[in-house]
Simulated scan of single mutants.
Amino acid sequence: MDAAAIAAPGGAPAKHEILNVKGLSAGYGPMRVIHALDFIVYSGERVGLVGLNGHGKSTLFYAIAGLTGWQRGSIRLNGVEVGRTRSQGPGRFTHLVVRQGLALIPQGDEIFHGLTVGEHLDSGAFTPRAWRERKQRKERVLAIFPPLVKLMDTPVGRLSGGERRMVSIGRGLMAEASLFLVDEPSLGLAPKAGKSVMAALMSVELGSSAMVIAEQNVALLEGKVDRIIGMHVGKLKGEASAALAFQTRREL
Protein backbone atom coordinates (compact mmCIF):
# COMPACT_ATOMS: atom_id res chain seq x y z
CA MET A 1 0.00 0.00 0.00
CA ASP A 2 1.11 3.57 -0.70
CA ALA A 3 2.89 5.06 2.29
CA ALA A 4 0.66 8.11 1.98
CA ALA A 5 -2.50 6.01 2.43
CA ILE A 6 -4.27 4.78 5.54
CA ALA A 7 -6.74 1.92 5.90
CA ALA A 8 -10.39 2.88 6.12
CA PRO A 9 -12.85 0.99 8.35
CA GLY A 10 -15.40 -1.47 7.02
CA GLY A 11 -13.46 -2.37 3.90
CA ALA A 12 -13.88 1.12 2.44
CA PRO A 13 -11.24 2.38 -0.01
CA ALA A 14 -8.01 3.55 1.61
CA LYS A 15 -7.70 7.27 2.22
CA HIS A 16 -4.75 9.02 0.60
CA GLU A 17 -2.98 12.22 1.50
CA ILE A 18 -4.36 15.18 -0.39
CA LEU A 19 -2.30 17.75 1.50
CA ASN A 20 0.90 17.33 3.51
CA VAL A 21 2.40 20.44 5.10
CA LYS A 22 5.68 20.09 7.01
CA GLY A 23 7.58 22.73 8.94
CA LEU A 24 5.74 25.61 7.29
CA SER A 25 6.59 29.15 8.35
CA ALA A 26 5.04 32.02 6.42
CA GLY A 27 4.39 35.72 6.66
CA TYR A 28 4.40 39.13 5.04
CA GLY A 29 7.41 41.45 4.98
CA PRO A 30 9.19 41.09 8.34
CA MET A 31 6.13 39.62 10.07
CA ARG A 32 5.95 35.86 10.67
CA VAL A 33 2.36 34.62 11.03
CA ILE A 34 2.75 30.81 10.68
CA HIS A 35 5.34 29.05 12.83
CA ALA A 36 6.85 25.66 11.80
CA LEU A 37 3.40 24.16 11.19
CA ASP A 38 2.63 20.52 10.27
CA PHE A 39 -0.76 19.65 8.76
CA ILE A 40 -2.10 16.62 6.85
CA VAL A 41 -5.49 16.26 5.11
CA TYR A 42 -6.76 12.97 3.67
CA SER A 43 -9.13 12.28 0.80
CA GLY A 44 -12.82 12.33 1.72
CA GLU A 45 -12.24 14.49 4.80
CA ARG A 46 -13.93 17.68 5.91
CA VAL A 47 -11.65 19.42 8.38
CA GLY A 48 -12.60 22.44 10.47
CA LEU A 49 -9.88 24.96 11.32
CA VAL A 50 -11.00 27.19 14.17
CA GLY A 51 -9.44 30.23 15.77
CA LEU A 52 -9.93 33.93 16.25
CA ASN A 53 -9.24 36.51 13.58
CA GLY A 54 -5.54 37.26 13.09
CA HIS A 55 -4.18 33.90 14.27
CA GLY A 56 -3.12 32.54 10.89
CA LYS A 57 -6.01 30.64 9.31
CA SER A 58 -6.12 32.76 6.16
CA THR A 59 -2.33 32.93 6.00
CA LEU A 60 -2.15 29.13 6.01
CA PHE A 61 -4.57 29.03 3.08
CA TYR A 62 -2.64 31.73 1.22
CA ALA A 63 0.64 29.90 1.81
CA ILE A 64 -0.80 26.71 0.28
CA ALA A 65 -1.93 28.78 -2.72
CA GLY A 66 1.43 30.56 -2.98
CA LEU A 67 0.03 33.98 -2.07
CA THR A 68 2.04 34.91 1.03
CA GLY A 69 4.90 37.39 1.03
CA TRP A 70 7.40 34.69 1.99
CA GLN A 71 7.43 31.13 3.29
CA ARG A 72 9.68 28.22 4.18
CA GLY A 73 8.93 24.52 4.56
CA SER A 74 7.25 21.85 2.45
CA ILE A 75 3.74 21.81 0.97
CA ARG A 76 2.79 18.72 -1.02
CA LEU A 77 -0.54 18.66 -2.87
CA ASN A 78 -1.50 15.28 -4.33
CA GLY A 79 2.08 14.15 -3.79
CA VAL A 80 3.63 17.06 -5.71
CA GLU A 81 5.70 19.74 -3.99
CA VAL A 82 3.99 23.11 -4.50
CA GLY A 83 5.60 25.05 -1.65
CA ARG A 84 8.04 27.70 -2.82
CA THR A 85 9.68 30.77 -1.33
CA ARG A 86 8.03 33.99 -2.42
CA SER A 87 11.31 35.68 -3.31
CA GLN A 88 10.04 36.28 -6.86
CA GLY A 89 6.69 37.63 -5.76
CA PRO A 90 3.52 36.13 -4.27
CA GLY A 91 1.14 34.60 -6.78
CA ARG A 92 3.80 33.79 -9.38
CA PHE A 93 3.08 30.06 -9.22
CA THR A 94 -0.53 30.10 -7.96
CA HIS A 95 -1.96 29.09 -11.34
CA LEU A 96 0.19 25.95 -11.21
CA VAL A 97 -1.11 25.10 -7.74
CA VAL A 98 -4.68 25.53 -9.02
CA ARG A 99 -3.96 23.17 -11.91
CA GLN A 100 -2.55 20.71 -9.40
CA GLY A 101 -6.00 20.55 -7.73
CA LEU A 102 -6.50 23.52 -5.39
CA ALA A 103 -9.63 25.68 -5.06
CA LEU A 104 -9.32 28.61 -2.66
CA ILE A 105 -12.61 30.22 -1.62
CA PRO A 106 -11.62 33.46 0.14
CA GLN A 107 -13.50 35.14 2.95
CA GLY A 108 -15.88 38.02 2.36
CA ASP A 109 -17.18 39.25 -0.96
CA GLU A 110 -14.20 38.55 -3.20
CA ILE A 111 -16.39 38.72 -6.28
CA PHE A 112 -16.67 40.62 -9.56
CA HIS A 113 -19.61 42.93 -8.95
CA GLY A 114 -20.15 43.74 -12.64
CA LEU A 115 -20.53 40.12 -13.72
CA THR A 116 -23.79 38.22 -13.62
CA VAL A 117 -24.16 35.17 -11.41
CA GLY A 118 -23.79 32.88 -14.42
CA GLU A 119 -20.68 34.69 -15.69
CA HIS A 120 -19.20 34.62 -12.22
CA LEU A 121 -19.67 30.86 -11.93
CA ASP A 122 -18.07 30.38 -15.35
CA SER A 123 -15.01 32.29 -14.13
CA GLY A 124 -14.34 29.51 -11.61
CA ALA A 125 -13.93 26.89 -14.35
CA PHE A 126 -10.22 27.68 -14.76
CA THR A 127 -8.76 24.47 -16.12
CA PRO A 128 -9.60 23.16 -19.62
CA ARG A 129 -11.57 20.19 -18.27
CA ALA A 130 -13.60 22.35 -15.89
CA TRP A 131 -14.38 24.75 -18.75
CA ARG A 132 -15.58 21.93 -20.99
CA GLU A 133 -17.79 20.64 -18.17
CA ARG A 134 -19.01 24.05 -16.98
CA LYS A 135 -22.66 23.39 -17.83
CA GLN A 136 -22.78 20.23 -15.72
CA ARG A 137 -20.76 21.89 -12.97
CA LYS A 138 -23.17 24.83 -12.84
CA GLU A 139 -26.06 22.41 -12.52
CA ARG A 140 -24.38 20.85 -9.48
CA VAL A 141 -23.73 24.27 -7.94
CA LEU A 142 -27.34 25.32 -8.47
CA ALA A 143 -28.53 22.09 -6.86
CA ILE A 144 -26.51 23.07 -3.77
CA PHE A 145 -27.64 26.73 -3.88
CA PRO A 146 -31.22 26.72 -5.31
CA PRO A 147 -31.79 30.48 -4.66
CA LEU A 148 -29.26 31.23 -7.42
CA VAL A 149 -31.36 29.55 -10.13
CA LYS A 150 -33.51 32.64 -10.70
CA LEU A 151 -30.55 35.00 -10.39
CA MET A 152 -28.27 33.70 -13.14
CA ASP A 153 -28.64 36.88 -15.26
CA THR A 154 -28.42 39.26 -12.29
CA PRO A 155 -25.21 41.24 -11.63
CA VAL A 156 -23.78 39.97 -8.36
CA GLY A 157 -23.41 43.53 -7.05
CA ARG A 158 -27.19 43.63 -6.65
CA LEU A 159 -27.39 40.53 -4.47
CA SER A 160 -27.76 40.25 -0.72
CA GLY A 161 -24.79 39.30 1.45
CA GLY A 162 -25.93 35.69 1.75
CA GLU A 163 -26.51 35.41 -2.00
CA ARG A 164 -23.08 36.87 -2.76
CA ARG A 165 -21.52 34.31 -0.44
CA MET A 166 -23.33 31.53 -2.31
CA VAL A 167 -21.90 32.86 -5.58
CA SER A 168 -18.38 33.07 -4.15
CA ILE A 169 -18.52 29.50 -2.86
CA GLY A 170 -20.20 28.30 -6.03
CA ARG A 171 -17.37 29.77 -8.09
CA GLY A 172 -14.89 27.70 -6.08
CA LEU A 173 -16.97 24.57 -6.51
CA MET A 174 -16.78 25.02 -10.28
CA ALA A 175 -13.07 24.19 -10.17
CA GLU A 176 -11.49 20.86 -11.00
CA ALA A 177 -10.18 20.50 -7.45
CA SER A 178 -9.13 17.79 -5.04
CA LEU A 179 -8.71 20.26 -2.15
CA PHE A 180 -11.21 23.00 -1.32
CA LEU A 181 -10.03 25.67 1.14
CA VAL A 182 -13.04 27.65 2.39
CA ASP A 183 -12.15 30.75 4.40
CA GLU A 184 -14.68 32.07 6.96
CA PRO A 185 -17.88 31.19 5.05
CA SER A 186 -20.16 32.66 7.75
CA LEU A 187 -18.22 35.93 8.17
CA GLY A 188 -20.53 38.96 8.17
CA LEU A 189 -23.69 36.93 7.62
CA ALA A 190 -26.77 36.80 9.82
CA PRO A 191 -26.88 33.60 11.92
CA LYS A 192 -29.61 32.02 9.76
CA ALA A 193 -27.71 32.77 6.54
CA GLY A 194 -24.48 31.47 8.04
CA LYS A 195 -26.13 28.19 8.98
CA SER A 196 -27.58 27.85 5.48
CA VAL A 197 -24.20 28.39 3.84
CA MET A 198 -22.57 25.88 6.18
CA ALA A 199 -25.31 23.32 5.49
CA ALA A 200 -24.66 23.74 1.77
CA LEU A 201 -20.94 23.07 2.28
CA MET A 202 -21.79 19.90 4.20
CA SER A 203 -23.92 18.73 1.27
CA VAL A 204 -21.04 18.86 -1.23
CA GLU A 205 -20.15 15.33 -2.33
CA LEU A 206 -16.39 15.15 -1.86
CA GLY A 207 -15.65 11.68 -3.21
CA SER A 208 -11.86 11.46 -3.24
CA SER A 209 -11.46 15.21 -2.68
CA ALA A 210 -11.13 17.01 0.67
CA MET A 211 -12.33 20.26 2.20
CA VAL A 212 -10.84 22.48 4.92
CA ILE A 213 -13.13 25.14 6.39
CA ALA A 214 -11.63 27.99 8.41
CA GLU A 215 -14.20 29.38 10.83
CA GLN A 216 -14.36 31.40 14.04
CA ASN A 217 -17.72 29.96 15.10
CA VAL A 218 -16.85 26.41 16.18
CA ALA A 219 -20.52 25.66 16.91
CA LEU A 220 -21.21 25.76 13.14
CA LEU A 221 -18.72 22.92 12.63
CA GLU A 222 -19.21 20.62 15.62
CA GLY A 223 -20.85 17.35 14.68
CA LYS A 224 -20.68 18.18 10.97
CA VAL A 225 -17.01 17.74 9.99
CA ASP A 226 -14.61 14.83 10.48
CA ARG A 227 -12.08 16.77 12.53
CA ILE A 228 -11.82 20.19 14.13
CA ILE A 229 -8.35 21.62 14.72
CA GLY A 230 -7.64 24.73 16.75
CA MET A 231 -5.27 27.46 15.57
CA HIS A 232 -3.65 29.97 17.91
CA VAL A 233 -0.89 32.51 17.17
CA GLY A 234 0.19 30.70 14.03
CA LYS A 235 0.33 27.19 15.46
CA LEU A 236 -2.10 24.27 15.44
CA LYS A 237 -3.40 23.19 18.83
CA GLY A 238 -4.69 19.72 17.99
CA GLU A 239 -8.27 18.51 18.09
CA ALA A 240 -10.56 21.37 19.04
CA SER A 241 -13.99 21.79 20.56
CA ALA A 242 -16.17 24.56 21.89
CA ALA A 243 -14.29 24.27 25.18
CA LEU A 244 -10.97 24.84 23.40
CA ALA A 245 -12.36 27.85 21.57
CA PHE A 246 -13.50 29.31 24.91
CA GLN A 247 -10.06 28.64 26.42
CA THR A 248 -8.38 30.43 23.47
CA ARG A 249 -10.54 33.51 24.03
CA ARG A 250 -9.59 33.56 27.73
CA GLU A 251 -5.88 33.34 26.84
CA LEU A 252 -6.28 36.50 24.78
Results as ranks from 00 to 15, higher is better:
A193F: 01
R134P: 00
E251L: 15
R227H: 15
G10I: 03
R158V: 00
M152F: 02
G234A: 14
V225N: 03
H55C: 11
E17D: 10
E119V: 08
Q71V: 10
N20F: 08
G27Q: 02
E139F: 12
M231N: 07
G10A: 04
G48C: 10
V182I: 12
G10R: 06
K15H: 05
I229S: 01
I18K: 08
K237S: 15
R84G: 05
V167F: 06
V167A: 01
I6M: 00
I213L: 06
A143Q: 15
K192Y: 07
Q136H: 14
I64Y: 02
S196L: 11
V47S: 05
G101V: 02
A130Q: 08
Q136W: 14
D226M: 04
E163R: 09
F112Q: 07
S43Y: 00
F145I: 01
G51I: 13
R72H: 14
I34R: 00
R171Y: 08
G230N: 03
L236I: 15
R84Q: 13
R140P: 01
E184Y: 05
F61T: 09
G223R: 13
G89S: 14
A4F: 04
Y62S: 13
E17W: 07
L148V: 04
G10Y: 01
V33R: 11
Q216A: 04
M174V: 13
L201R: 02
G157W: 06
G157F: 02
G48F: 03
S209K: 00
P146L: 08
A14P: 08
R165P: 00
H16R: 09
A175F: 10
H120F: 10
A26P: 12
G162C: 07
I144Y: 10
S160K: 09
I144Q: 08
H55S: 10
V204M: 12
F246V: 14
L49H: 05
P185E: 08
W131C: 14
V233P: 02
K235V: 15
I40D: 07
V225M: 03
R72Y: 10
G194E: 05
G89H: 12
G27I: 01
H120L: 14
S203E: 15
R249C: 13
G79T: 11
H95G: 06
R250S: 13
M202R: 14
A193T: 04
G79K: 03
P90E: 07
G101Q: 09
A242L: 13
W131A: 15
A7C: 08
A12P: 00
G157V: 09
K57C: 00
L104M: 12
S168A: 14
V167W: 03
F39S: 02
P13L: 02
V218N: 01
E17F: 11
A193Q: 04
S196F: 09
I228E: 05
S58K: 03
R132A: 15
G27S: 05
L67Y: 02
V41D: 01
K57Q: 04
K138F: 07
T68N: 13
K150W: 05
S209E: 01
E239S: 15
A177M: 11
V233K: 13
V33L: 10
S25P: 08
T116A: 10
M174C: 11
